[in-house]
Design a protein around this nucleic acid. Structure first.
Lengths: 388, 388
DNA sequence: CTCTTTAATTGACAGCGGAAAATAAGGGGC
DNA sequence: GCCCCTTATTTTCCGCTGTCAATTAAAGAG
């Protein structure tokens, strides 16, 4: 394994230092004054926390940043030096592992995907280890140390304990993944649920920056949901939350594998849409891409299927908004490729079903490149590094 | 107004003192050792925080509490002296104001209700002031000072700002209630939404003690929901959360005033049940009590209405459980009077609709005496007093 | 009566973060 | 060009909180 020296850790482990660092990290270049205001700390505390971070190279003074020119001494913004460190993020599905090398600002530098041949830990872990090795080698090219490894897995994951309690796609039970990966890589490892990891990426580096309450809804093979409440990602009392897929949205809708009918997932998941398009149009579309193509070509039946899916998604989001009152809902996922086919319905159904001030919740979409899930994993690693 | 001396405040305003006090308050008699373990502080810190609290009379050493006799020096538990202080809680509805005098442990000492003749602030406030005066006089009989006033109002309430932004039943808009009440009573005032206040009471003094994630669902004139996530009551980005009443639960169910169909509130609220019983049985029942009586008497139609309501509630709760993964859902509210009529359906529908580990969420019921809402208001006042 | 065990307390102390004063770095007026 | 004004940052000092490592307290066991 290329890297052997123990990974550096974050300097100055005081709460204030963590807080200031993450504030600067997520809110771009910030003057010490601004950072103080945002964190509620005194300017003196900022100066004191910033110095060691600059000395360690994690923060840099950013002369280039525009400061509104006014009276008095010009402000001296600082920002995080993204190039100072790298992190690896892995996302494991049942078919493949996606890995990225992301910098400290969570910008992707390298992305890789490798297929999986088996699903047992014994089969998956060596492939993951190889991928990590490869990315570590890549990292050497940047001349920067890799300071953490994040792994995202679907299912019931205990981030604090670093274990995968249950993963349906991989069929894993109680795998102490963090410990195993730490052993193999020598890096500090963070393991988290995939949707939560994606949510962390939005919270720190995406459309959730600065919001203490928001939701991420992923549309694709399944329908997932990550929630941020009180500024923290929700894990629930038993490690699972955000199961939006089985919210009832279509009266007497199609049966769902959960046993109920009309669940969001039974209407708006890729598989559900594809099946329904086949059923309605008689065209034997094989996958979501073909279904989309058919609808885009103007097939009325297919378009209606997407319309219904959009309505279902809008109602599902409204349920979340009614219950939690988030400031924003971010829709993402592979299913977004068809967004033009149901955007209107999502919006209308949401507006109709959002009650009172829940309607003030903003709904926006965000494309989801394939590496994004792995980037989320990297974001959790950065979060751990920053002491959160 | 009887009491004129400025209300005492909490001694020792350090985070640790607050934390230790609330821990002892909510977890009954606790040895200093235990308190240290639970708060994560050192035993030394507990000793130091506890002393001024004992001197001020808020904590007392509780020799009576049973300690498991083992080796070594016997432990010396402390508990909160409930009789040390009183708090007033008010709940304002469109028809009446309910007021309670509660002690520091939130046990109700006196409860009063007075009818309202008008709904404008100008009409309601004097009535409330009279009630507060009356309760203050009652308090004199206990020889203890009243240290805070909590007011619970349905609708959009900004606790931090102390304003009622919008209350549908009272038709209030942007009323600076805390400031007005403080002026009139001379007490520190906490204003909060009624369901949240009830949730606070459960969190500190009820079935939510010790849980960082749980929900309270109230069944009655409306269906409400208070949520606790990460140990804090959820207010949402815009001050409103827990709108469970419009979760869709019955396919193509009865139309709801929100414009949708089959909302929980359109199926399981008192009014919905009563109307439906009339419709199904042809018996002109006037209110929920008569509807319950009819069902209890064995009328099959009426029983079916309750069964459907129970199913709806179970599904609504399952939606909450799926999204947030609470450890427990507490069902309460006036509608609980009919619980024997739908308990089975609630349980079955919940089990059917709760997905995966959301099913591990415990569902329990809790009776709701009429003063309970006002007690919730008192709980918010106690919370403010303790520095939370 | 002494030893063991666990609880609570004490006193010294580190260190975090705040307040206020000092310093830095411009721009503007004259 | 010089001085003053304004705002940003830094420095210095200091209070205060909570921890650490004894020390004391209060049983029961032998």
């Amino acid at each position: 394994m290329p890297s052997t020296s123990p990974a550096e850790t974050f300097p100055a482990h005081t709460p204030a230092a963590s807080q200031i660092f993450t504030t600067v990290l997520t809110h771009g270049p910030l003057t010490r004054q601004e950072a103080a205001r945002r964190t509620g700390l005194s300017p003196a505390a900022v100066t004191k926390a910033v110095r060691p971070l600059i000395e360690a190279g994690f923060l840099v003074e950013d002369a280039g940043a525009e400061v509104r020119p006014g009276l008095g001494r010009p402000a001296n913004p600082v920002r995080v030096d993204g190039g100072r460190a790298l992190f690896i993020g892995l996302k494991a599905t049942g078919d493949e592992i996606i890995g990225v090398l992301a910098d400290l600002c969570c910008r992707i530098r390298v992305a890789r995907r490798v297929p999986l041949t088996g699903r047992t830990p014994r089969e998956v872990l060596p492939v993951a280890a190889d991928l990590v090795r490869e990315l570590l080698t890549e990292a050497e090219g940047f001349g920067v140390q890799v300071l953490g490894l994040g792994i995202a897995v679907a299912g019931d994951v205990d981030r604090a304990a670093g274990t995968v309690r249950f993963s349906p796609f991989l069929d894993w039970h109680d795998v102490p993944l963090a410990a195993l990966a730490e052993e193999a890589s020598g890096l500090p490892v963070t393991v988290d649920n995939d949707v939560r990891a994606l949510t962390v990426a939005e919270q720190w580096f995406g459309d959730g920056v600065g919001l203490s309450d928001f939701a991420v809804v992923t549309v694709g093979a399944g329908i997932g949901c990550g929630l941020v409440v009180h500024g923290r990602v929700v894990s629930g009392a038993h490690g699972v939350a955000g199961e939006i897929g089985h919210v009832p949205v279509v009266p007497d809708g199609p049966p769902c594998h959960c046993g109920d009918r009309g669940c969001l997932e039974a209407v708006a998941s890729d598989a559900a849409i594809t099946a329904r398009v086949r059923e309605v149009t008689g065209v034997p579309v094989a996958d979501a891409a073909e279904a989309v193509a058919l609808a885009r070509a103007g097939d009325a039946g297919a378009r209606a299927v997407y319309a219904r899916a959009g309505e279902a998604i809008g109602r599902g989001i409204a349920t979340v908004a009614n219950l939690l009152g988030p400031a924003r809902v971010i829709i993402s996922g592979e299913g977004l490729a068809a967004y033009d086919l149901f955007a209107g319905q999502v919006r209308d159904a949401f507006a109709a079903a959002a009650f009172g001030s829940a309607a003030r919740c903003e709904v926006r979409t965000r494309p989801l490149p394939f590496e994004e899930w792995a980037r989320g994993a990297a974001a959790t690693a950065i979060q751990s590094f920053a002491g959160r």
